[in-house]
Nucleic acid binder design. Structure first.
Length: 368
DNA sequence: AATACGGGGAC
DNA sequence: GTCCCAGTATT
């Protein structure tokens, strides 16, 4: 049985499997397809070639690097973990399982993955791919997310793990764990698995009994939620009004246009009231610039992007008047006027970035 | 045990 | 539209 034959892709963290590189790759790959990660990984390692570089990274620059990958807590945890490694491990990635597990953003899967892939040590793994591969292999007819299934799958993952000398990476734990995941990604796919190409087809319960479509059972039970939000674009001279989100909230440390949904802004009037409170002046929402549809995690968002104007009647009062009002406002903590060029260097949500793109092409006359 | 995570790809 | 992705932290 040649597991390692499934280990076919040329991935950058295989060419050089230092613990740091494998760690970064594993964090990026959490809930993210490998192909999506590749360009981010190369850029990231170029910007932060060592753990010390990462620990010393500017937080905003780090978030900008992560922009578009989603699950942004991963980036904050990565940063915090790098600082912890510098403080507690002299800048060297820890080698004991417990020390690795104690790092923020690292759970049982990631700790095992890093130590097995980087050091070829015999730690089992279990993630999306191997849950499916092993479930089919052993004919587990209980959904893999159940507590009992998890226990059996971890047990099987450990049972199958080859114990080889540490210099035999291809046939050792490093090769096996990566091959098992790759088998799930390329062959043992959720739908229409390619059993005729599978190296373990002759041993696989699901294949032998034709249960590929029943195993694993449906995992998804997400309730999608439609949500409409309003974004306000104040554009005065060559600048727009944005805010940096504070710690502890969604998009913490990232920059966004003023944006709210229900219950704060259930309609344009609600948004105007909220903005007026924030800025201490009357606000009028004007022309709708764009409707952005954005599906993310369990949300199906419709974002109404409106031009916005400071002060009553300023829509028709001309640019000089708007500029005067803008400069008289005491902005709340975290809010600022920024040019579109300046925004290029700041971390934004995907929808925020789309609004920037919109404004680059927009006619300034839309903003009076 | 259930939920949040505010991104994206494949079908 | 739906499901899933080299999961973890929080409640």
């Amino acid at each position: 049985m040649k597991w390692f034959a499934a280990n076919a892709r040329d991935l950058p963290w295989r060419r050089d499997h230092s613990a740091y590189r494998v760690w970064v790759s594993e964090i990026m790959c959490q809930q993210t397809q490998v192909a999506t990660v590749l360009p981010y990984f190369e850029r990231f390692l170029e910007a932060y070639p060592t753990i010390a570089n990462l620990a010393a990274a500017d937080e905003a620059e780090l978030m900008r690097m992560w922009e578009g990958l989603g699950y942004y807590r991963r980036a904050r945890s990565l940063h915090a973990a790098a600082q912890k490694i510098v403080a507690e491990h002299d800048g060297n990635f820890p080698t004991s399982f417990d020390d690795v597990l104690a790092l923020p953003g690292i759970g049982r899967y990631t700790a095992g993955a890093i130590l097995s892939i980087s050091r070829n040590e015999a730690f089992p793994i279990l993630e999306g791919n191997t849950q499916r591969v092993f479930s089919r292999w052993i004919g587990l007819n209980v959904p893999p997310t159940e507590r009992e299934s998890q226990a059996r799958l971890w047990e099987f993952s450990e049972l199958m793990l080859p114990r080889r000398s540490a210099d035999d990476r291809t046939r050792g734990p490093a090769g096996f764990n990566q091959a098992a995941m790759e088998l799930g990604a390329l062959v043992c796919s959720p739908r229409n698995p390619k059993c005729d190409e599978c190296p373990v087809a002759s041993l696989c319960h699901a294949n032998l009994f034709g249960l590929q479509d029943e195993i694993p059972g449906k995992i998804s039970k997400v309730q999608y939620e439609s949500r409409t939000e309003i974004a306000a674009v104040f554009r005065v001279d060559d600048k727009v009004l944005v805010r940096t989100l504070p710690k502890g909230v969604r998009f913490a440390g990232m920059v966004d246009f003023p944006r709210e949904g229900p219950p704060v802004a259930s309609d344009l009037a609600g948004m105007e009231s909220w903005l007026a409170v924030q800025l201490g002046v009357e606000v009028q929402l004007g022309m709708k610039l764009k409707t952005i549809k954005h599906a993310v995690t369990r949300y199906r968002m419709t974002l109404q992007v409106h031009a916005a104007h400071l002060g009553v009647g300023q829509m028709d009062a001309g640019e000089a008047a708007a500029s005067t009002v803008a400069s008289s406002i005491a902005l709340p903590e975290g809010w600022q006027w920024a040019t579109l060029d300046e925004l290029e260097a700041m971390p934004m949500s995907v929808t925020g970035r789309k609004i920037v793109g919109l404004l680059k092409d927009a006619q300034p006359s839309l903003f009076g």
